Amino acid sequence: MTRKRRTFTPEFKQEAACLVLDQGYSVSEAGRSLDVGENALRRWTQQLKDERQGFTPKSKALTPEQQRIQELEARVNRLEREKAILKKATALLMSDELNRTR
């Protein structure tokens, strides 16, 4: 019988990683007490350590500051795509208008 894959909230991941980084628990101790795999806990700990150093992760951020950065980066990306579409549409409309006036 296969075990259903569990999902954890960013808050839970952050708290679990804080046990290791801030409170001195070993990864194996924290993993056993939280019933979380050691590899997952190591990843979360490394991600939190990187985020505290200012690196934005590729996956879902753990800290509120990095979550905000990811939201803003996604918004900038969307606005840049919209801007490119509007530029192309304007150029198309202008060329169409020039062809009509000739």
Rank of each mutant, 00 (worst) to 15 (best):
M1T: 14
T2I: 12
R3F: 11
R3D: 11
K4N: 14
K4V: 14
R5D: 08
T7V: 08
F8E: 00
E11F: 04
F12D: 04
K13E: 04
A16S: 02
A17Q: 00
L19T: 00
V20T: 00
V20L: 00
L21Q: 00
G24K: 01
Y25P: 02
Y25M: 07
S26E: 03
S26C: 03
V27Y: 07
S28Q: 13
A30H: 04
G31Q: 01
R32C: 07
R32F: 07
D35I: 03
G37L: 02
E38G: 13
N39C: 13
A40S: 15
L41Y: 00
R42W: 12
R43N: 12
L48T: 03
K49C: 13
D50S: 11
D50F: 09
D50Q: 10
E51M: 07
R52N: 00
P57D: 01
S59R: 10
A61V: 06
P64F: 02
Q66P: 03
Q66L: 12
Q66N: 11
Q67M: 06
Q67A: 10
Q70R: 04
E71D: 12
E71R: 15
E71Q: 15
A74H: 03
V76F: 06
N77T: 14
R78P: 03
K87V: 15
K87S: 14
K88Q: 14
T90S: 15
L92E: 15
L93F: 10
M94D: 14
S95D: 11
S95H: 11
S95G: 11
E97Q: 12
N99I: 09
N99H: 10
R100C: 02
